[in-house]
Design a protein around this nucleic acid. Structure first.
Lengths: 255, 255
DNA sequence: AGGACGGTATCGTGATCACAAAATGACGGC
DNA sequence: GCCGTCATTTTGTGATCACGATACCGTCCT
């Protein structure tokens, strides 16, 4: 993995190096710079970022503590490969937590926030039409998190972010599959916003729960997960790595 | 805070020092060795544990990442003081997550597990009768976590543990108040177990949700939180620290 | 040709040090 | 008597180093 793949900080150099390292790695994770299974070595990251191993170590351990990366018994961090069971479990947690965020947010939504959400929804449609999955997914995410943030529940938001962080690498792989979802599913966000405009947080929460459930079963059907058997005919061609993701540079030893 | 207050590891020295440090601090946190507001200095902890500052730093940052401690802008870790709002938010999250764990666990409960849970329930009654709040709280916690663990949902359990970890110091302060709760509330665990024996996970989950809600409003009414106004008459006597916790050693500069 | 083996490069851990920022405590002035 | 100010101490950060363990890769044997 090349240095240039790590998103630039654009931060004033006043923040501690550890914080900068943490943020860059975290953003790289959600943006799918790393593929599941990539190994993140302390020394390589430090070298890539031009620091000593120390800030990289701290940042990596911090990500490990929030489950954003796994850590092998040797101590090396690795981008998590989600199994089918783990993905299902996370979906169940999301289905409990994110509707709760909406319920908490509902009574706090003022006209300006509702307008901002509507604007994001319009952009959502544009993003879908654009055919650029990364744009589409980002807008999708921004809409939901703008909503969650209105709940003013920092602990809850932190937990939801941790879940999305862990899902990041998989979502990147799933981006084309996700755009192929029937457009009807995308209108859910509109219905959520409608319900919120009526002041019916409960309906909005139920709508979101349905959306999470549907998207999950869609992905469970359409995606391959860690531990899935390789498709018979292709296995011999692709090698035991199993995945045939085309556009990544060869020799991806991560850092 | 004296060295001897940190629980002993009883671990084979084969684990990395950072892991040992982390576990000891974590246990100290749930056991209420530290009071909310205590400052946990890297160097002091390292000295108390006879290591270099490095493992202490890593362990502390790990605890910070899971919200078990807060970290001041200067970088010093501090045992969190829960505000009323934060406590309420955490209760709402618990009310979403822990019933989910029960729902997931319900279909997986076999006869041996149910028996073990019943045994813990009996011990629960004994603990209540004993009048020792620490014993009482520990058994209470063990019963619930034994149940949650049956869900075999590691991510979910990790999140629930993180919530309890954050609540630890407050619960320690609340231990006498909690034992004073009407005994009727304690029978809820029995009703949960009954529902699970009938295979009705849904009823058990609702029961737990009610228990969490009730315990929360009880504590909100009975306890004082960070940011609460000091009781008028006592303020002059107790000084501006506000709290009158009697049995702690003076000059508690933490580590 | 496939699998086991051994050597080498790399890895994570933890100690020590230098430095700058922050907290602490005492002193003097209002 | 109370508050602001300054010097001292303590704090966290990050770099560097040594050490033991691990993983990787080419080679050899079967």
């Amino acid at each position: 993995m090349l240095i240039s793949t790590i998103p630039d900080p654009a931060e004033p150099a006043t923040l501690p190096l550890e914080e900068q390292t943490y943020r860059r790695l975290r953003q790289a994770l959600v943006e799918g710079v790393f593929a599941p299974g990539d190994k993140l070595s302390i020394r390589r990251i430090a070298e890539a970022l031009g620091t000593s191993p120390m800030p990289a170590r701290t940042a990596l351990r911090r990500l490990a503590a929030e489950q954003a990366v796994d850590v092998m018994p040797s101590g090396t961090a690795v981008v998590p490969r989600l199994t089918r069971e783990a993905f299902q479990e996370m979906a169940a947690i999301r289905a409990a937590l994110e509707p709760l965020a909406i319920r908490l947010a509902a009574p706090r939504l003022g006209a300006p926030t509702l307008q901002r959400l509507q604007a994001m929804l319009d952009e959502h449609a544009a993003a879908r039409a654009s055919g650029q999955p990364e744009y589409f997914l980002r807008v999708d995410r921004d809409f939901l998190f703008a909503l969650y943030r209105a709940a003013e529940a920092p602990t809850l938001i932190g937990m939801i972010e941790a879940l999305w962080l862990r899902r990041g690498p998989l979502f990147w792989e799933a981006r084309w599959v996700l755009m192929a979802r029937p457009a009807e599913a995308a209108h859910r966000h509109g219905q959520i916003l409608d319900a919120l405009r009526r002041g019916d947080g409960e309906a909005a929460a139920r709508e979101l729960e349905g959306e999470i459930t549907d998207a999950t079963s869609f992905l469970l059907a359409e995606m391959r997960f860690a531990g899935d058997p390789a498709p018979a005919g292709l296995a011999a061609l692709a090698g035991k790595r199993g995945a045939s993701r085309p556009p990544r540079p060869l020799q991806r030893r991560a850092f």
